[in-house]
Write a protein that binds this DNA or RNA. Structure first.
Lengths: 142, 142
DNA sequence: CCTTTGTCCTGTAGTCGCTACAGACATTAC
DNA sequence: GTAATGTCTGTAGCGACTACAGGACAAAGG
C-alpha cells in the first residue's frame, strides 16, 4: 500500500535520462513515436516523470539493445498494456526476432568468410595487384 | 585492339539496371553521391552508359554486398582511379572493414544467446508469466 | 503523320532510429 | 536583479536507398 503512490518521484526529463542512461532527445523521440506515454506536465509545460516512466523506458531500452524494432516493441508494449497478454503471444514475437537476428548473423558470416579469405591472399606490398580488388572488380573472381 | 572502343555499348539507364540487377533509381543515387561518374548524355538529356559504367556499377554493387560503406567505397574507387594504388592500401581498407563485420557478428551473437536462452524457457502457454517479458521488464532479470 | 504509350528526366519526400541544433520560455544560482 | 543554465518546440541531418509527381521526350501502332 505504501508503494501505491510510487509515481510521486516527480522527475525531470534530464533526471530520467541520467537514471536510465538514455539520451535526452531520445526520450522525447520515444514519446513522439508512441513508445513512451505523454507524461503529465508542470504548470509551465515541463514534463514530469515517475517510477512508471523509468520502468517503461528501461523496457524500451532493453528491447532496443536486443535489436527489436520499434514496431515490434510497440507490439510487445500493447500486449503488456492490454493486461491480458500470454507467454505464447510474447514468445511468438521473440521467436520471429530471433530468426531475424540469426539471418543477419548468417549474412555477416558469409561476408566475413569472403573477406577474410580474400584478404589473406593480399601481399600487403607495393604492387597494384590485389586479390580484394580482383574480387570487387570481377564477378567471376575467386 | 578491337576491344579498345568497348565503350560503344550506348546503354540506357534501364539497360544498365537490367544488366547489373541494380535498382533504376539507385543508379541515379550513386551518381548523385559520387560513386558513379556523370555519364554522357544524348542530345535530349538522356544518360548514355558504356561498358566502363557496367564495370564500375558492378564494383560498387559487389562492395555493397560485402557491406562496405559508401565512404569506404569512395575511398577504394579513388585509390583505383588514381591509378597508383597498392595492395597494401587496399588491404588496409579491407582489414578495417573486416574488423567492423566481426564486431557486428559478435554483437549479434550476444543478442542471439540472450534471446535464445530466454525464449527456451518460455512455456508457450496462456499464462501471462513470460521469461522474455521478465528479461525486458527488469534489468536484474535472468 | 499523328497519337498513344512507355520511358526518361528532375526534384522531393519517405523509410528507421535516432541526434543535434535554433530560438523561445522557465528555473536556478549568485 | 541578473546571468547562467535547463527545458520547450519544431525542424534538419545522418546512411543507403526507394518511390512518387509532374513534365519532356522516344518508340510503336494505326
Amino acid at each position: 500500500m505504501p508503494d501505491d503512490h510510487a509515481h510521486a518521484a516527480d522527475l525531470k526529463r534530464s533526471d530520467l535520462a541520467r537514471m536510465t542512461g538514455c539520451n535526452l532527445e531520445t526520450i522525447r523521440y520515444y514519446e513522439c513515436v508512441g513508445l513512451m506515454p505523454d507524461p503529465p506536465r508542470s504548470p509551465s509545460g515541463h514534463r514530469r516523470y515517475g517510477a512508471a516512466h523509468v520502468e517503461r523506458l528501461g523496457f524500451v531500452m532493453r528491447a532496443r539493445e536486443l535489436g527489436f524494432s520499434m514496431e515490434e516493441i510497440r507490439g510487445l508494449l500493447s500486449l503488456v498494456d492490454r493486461g491480458s497478454h500470454t507467454c505464447a503471444e510474447v514468445e511468438k514475437v521473440g521467436r520471429h526476432h530471433l530468426n531475424v537476428v540469426r539471418a543477419k548473423i548468417r549474412d555477416l558470416q558469409a561476408i566475413e568468410r569472403t573477406l577474410a579469405g580474400t584478404i589473406s591472399r593480399c601481399s600487403g606490398s607495393d604492387t597494384p595487384d590485389c586479390p580484394l580488388l580482383d574480387t570487387l572488380s570481377d564477378a567471376r573472381a575467386q
